[in-house]
Write a protein that binds this DNA or RNA. Structure first.
Lengths: 215, 215
DNA sequence: ACCTGTCCTGTCATGCCGTCAGCTTACCGA
DNA sequence: TCGGTAAGCTGACGGCATGACAGGACAGGT
């Protein structure tokens, strides 16, 4: 049950319809990366897709609806971020490696989808539950995994008892997301990508294990 | 030279004009916290302020212009965040205290101005230089101070040479800002405010000094 | 009372929104 | 081959926000 694609008025979308729908999504996605969210107009998206506004409204209730769609696609893709943590070690040099790869993968994912992630972030911050859930879905894989890691280390007595695993993991993930979406900002600040990553990795390692990494 | 307040068409604003202007700003500010940025309309702001859209356009070129104005006010106010760090110690128990107070003050400031800060964040992330500069202005006080602290500790050999002070400070500040703007999010995640703060403080302390705090 | 410059609004052209009825196109079974 | 049916698309329209302007209301000074 993948849930058939339907138009707003209930018709099931066929071959051609789905193509148009997808084209609209692609164009919207492109517009989001070239102009402010606030200024994205349905008519522009439609024109760019070589169709009319009315067609847009056949497939999406409004711009927000379409954005949610794009974000949903991205979210499932983003579940792959779990790979960055599944079965990795946090001990010794391997721990440092894990930390670095997490940062690397995370920033890469964010850079690839920055336009849509900005909008999701805003929606979530504004308290919209749908966007909030979506943001969770994306971050949860990483977050849960980190939380578990901290819990384990805590059980072994390697991390202080008064650390709250969920809070720690959440903070680290939030940090990664924030830095990722302001990557350009750091450059103007005089900090280069290459210098940023190891510092982030260091913070992640410190946060998770409570110790400096062995390099 | 505070730079006289002027209308869009160049007249200097008098007593009454400034009052109206301020009222518009207040109403806009209020609207921003109750509805999505994308849906804030000039006409609503004007109505709420008991005036007409035309009046709004006499004082501001558009909604964005007014937002920048509000943000500017907040930015100067936010320079006070420096207090949280000026002349504080990062050694021993005092260091833990400093870290905690920084987190506390930062979150408080963010909570107080969350609506407008969201918009600034979005604008900055979208690459708008004006918003970007504003964000810098707000964060710079804290950021510079943290950078200096790390540099000092590094000079004394208490922090690893391969830590980049600016990158570290920037990451920590970004983390604080991100967590602050998703405070509600954490609650739904099952993390309570009271648990969040000490964990953030711990991360800040770890990042700045490289060591666990003495409590 | 009069003048001057500030302040506000009625009004208007423009352009986007969101909807509908109706036309075209593709598919399918007889 | 030929309708029939459902999918797919669009022109057109009322409604509303935008942004500009001219002109009227108002306050303060003389």
């Amino acid at each position: 049950m993948t849930g058939q694609v339907r138009t707003v008025d209930g018709r099931v979308a066929g071959r051609r319809g789905q193509a148009t729908r997808q084209k609209l999504l692609d164009c919207l996605s492109e517009m989001l990366s070239s102009s402010p969210y606030r200024d994205v107009k349905v008519i522009d998206v439609a024109r760019k897709a070589g169709t009319s506004p009315a067609t847009f409204y056949q497939y999406f209730p409004d711009v927000e609806g379409a954005v949610l769609e794009i974000a949903e696609q991205m979210a499932t893709e983003g579940a792959g971020l779990t790979q960055l943590l599944d079965g990795r070690s946090w001990v010794g040099k391997a721990g440092w490696q894990t930390s670095q790869e997490l940062v690397e993968g995370f920033l890469e994912f964010w850079r690839k989808n920055d336009a849509i992630l900005r909008v999701v972030d805003l929606g979530a911050a504004e308290g919209d539950k749908r966007f909030y859930k979506l943001r969770m879905k994306i971050l949860n894989s990483v977050n849960n995994s980190l939380t578990d890691t901290v819990k384990e280390l805590q059980a072994k007595g390697k991390v202080d008892k008064d650390v709250n695993p969920a809070a720690m993991a959440g903070s680290l993930v939030a940090m990664l997301a924030a830095v990722a979406s302001h990557q350009r900002g750091f450059q103007t600040w005089g900090v280069k990508q290459a210098e940023l990553k190891p510092n982030l990795a260091l913070l992640v390692h410190l946060g998770v294990t409570g110790k400096k990494p062995t390099k």
